[in-house]
Each structure stands twice: as structure tokens, then as C-alpha cells.
């Protein structure tokens, strides 16, 4: 696939509001290295689908994400704020949440918003500096 920078990938999946929220993210990326061997696809521009699945190695950590469907999504009792999407960092679940137009966040980066689960996972990896996620979800 053609090489795509992270900033371009974000641009492809964000609307104006989310783009504004990512100013700080872009500056934090300026001195980081590109993702290794990513095989992710940005959501089609203007598409109305949810975030797409991903599976890549980012800064030495395997990050995976997939939409939850059917019973798995239903079991989480999402009432409009939770996310029918599962993210793993080295196989351990990173609790992510979707907040409508303002974007995504996680238990690791709770006071920011991201354009997609992929950016949420990558930022968590950067934040952890080698530590592992301790899954916590009292409603599952």
C-alpha cells in the first residue's frame, strides 16, 4: 500500500471539530518515528461507516482494534457513550470510549479526544513508555 503519514491518516478520518482537537497531538508527533509496518486503512472520506479494524506494531507494541458486533456489543450495554469497539495493546484491553462528535478517549488518556481508536491506541503506547495496560471495566 502507499505510504501514508499519520497526520494524513488523521485528516482522512476527521471532521473539522475533531481536527481542531488534534492540534496538540500533531505537535507531540513531530519528533516521533513513523509507524512500523502498519496495514491500516483510513476510513473512506465522507464515508459513514464506523472506525475500521487495525493491527500494527507501533513503537514496538502490537496494537489491535476491531468493532464489536452482535452479542459482544450488546453485552456492554452501550447507551450512546460507550464504544462498540475493542482495542488491545500487546493483547491487553485498553478501555476506549466514543463521545460523539468530540471523538475518542481511553482510560490512559482521559482528558483528551482523538479522531479514531487507532490514534487513541497509538497515544496510549506513547504515554505508557513500556508499561502495560491494566484492564478495568466494571460494566463488562
Amino acid at each position: 500500500m502507499s505510504k501514508i503519514t499519520r497526520r494524513q491518516a488523521v485528516g482522512a478520518v476527521t471532521g473539522t471539530a475533531a481536527g481542531l482537537a488534534l492540534v496538540g497531538v500533531a505537535s507531540a508527533w513531530a519528533d516521533s518515528t513513523p509507524a512500523e509496518g502498519g496495514k491500516n486503512k483510513a476510513a473512506p472520506p465522507g464515508g459513514n461507516g464506523g472506525p475500521v479494524a487495525f493491527d500494527e506494531v507501533f513503537q514496538g507494541r502490537r496494537i489491535q482494534g476491531e468493532p464489536l458486533e452482535g452479542a459482544a456489543a450488546h453485552a456492554r450495554g452501550h447507551a450512546g457513550h460507550g464504544s462498540p469497539f475493542r482495542v488491545l495493546i500487546d493483547g491487553r484491553e485498553l478501555h476506549v470510549m466514543h463521545h460523539g462528535k468530540s471523538g475518542w478517549s481511553s482510560a490512559i488518556n482521559h482528558y483528551e479526544r482523538f479522531a479514531s481508536p487507532l490514534e487513541t491506541a497509538r497515544t496510549a503506547v506513547t504515554t505508557l513508555k513500556g508499561a502495560s495496560v491494566v484492564p478495568f471495566n466494571p460494566t463488562v
Partner: peptide, 14 residues
Amino acid sequence: HRLRFALDMNTGVY
């Protein structure tokens, strides 16, 4: 605080 955050996210009542 951790519990409140997680419950808010999943119940939809902030």
C-alpha cells in the same frame, strides 16, 4: 474516581 469515570462512559449519564 476510576469507577466514576468508567461508569459514566458506559451508562451514558455523565
